[in-house]
Amino acid sequence: MDRRQSIKALLLGTASSGVLIEACKNSDKKVTENTTVQPFTGPERMAEENAHYKELTAEPKFFTDHEMATIAILADIIIPKDNISGSATDAKVPDFIEFIVHEKTEHQTPMRGGLRWMDMYCLNNYGKTFRECDDKQKIALVDQIAYPKKVKPELKQGAAFFSLMRNLTSSGFYTSEIGVKDVGYMGNRPNQWNGVPDDVLKQYGLSYTEKELKECVSFNKV
């Protein structure tokens, strides 16, 4: 049973949530990397919102190709592939950043200016833009601006930009299918809340009181 059918069944009252939990466990699909999700524009939206979305997506791209390529490099430095999950570009973080600066226009100038700040730094030090630098040069700069508490005073603007870039990258990555799985958020599905698992209670030396056990909703443990 897929999620949509589950909800339908719940609505019609033809299934208890217990049955659905099992059904959902069995059919939870694998995380499919690189899927492009169509944002919802159906009955969950009011007319003004759909018009607003249409307007935003009809605007010309904010970032130039060069800027987008730089964003992709930075995003993958911030969130690379590791033994648990894929990278920021696997999760299409640059596309999210392109969209979000249309929605939250306050990020436009800090992003554009920050990217140019990096390019100017690289031009002055290496004679080429950040994206044209070799990996060693790129990391040398990143190491200087990725740690805001120990950054040199003359590079503070670079650190402010890098923090914004890190924040936008983590927003984009951890709200993607890959990122949600990585961080281990296990909700957003029909469930039966039966309290903190026993082993976790034990780990923290906690327990439910008799009053709680008597008064609260309980489900038979599977």
């Binding site: 999700v37 919802f40 607003h52 969209f99 979000i100 599905r189």
Partner: peptide, 17 residues
């Protein structure tokens, strides 16, 4: 209900709506 964060192009961020 039950939409995933990635189904929102703004990932659940607020709008004036």
């Amino acid at each position: 209900q039950l939409k995933n964060p990635w189904e929102s192009p703004r990932r659940g961020a607020s709008t004036k709506f």
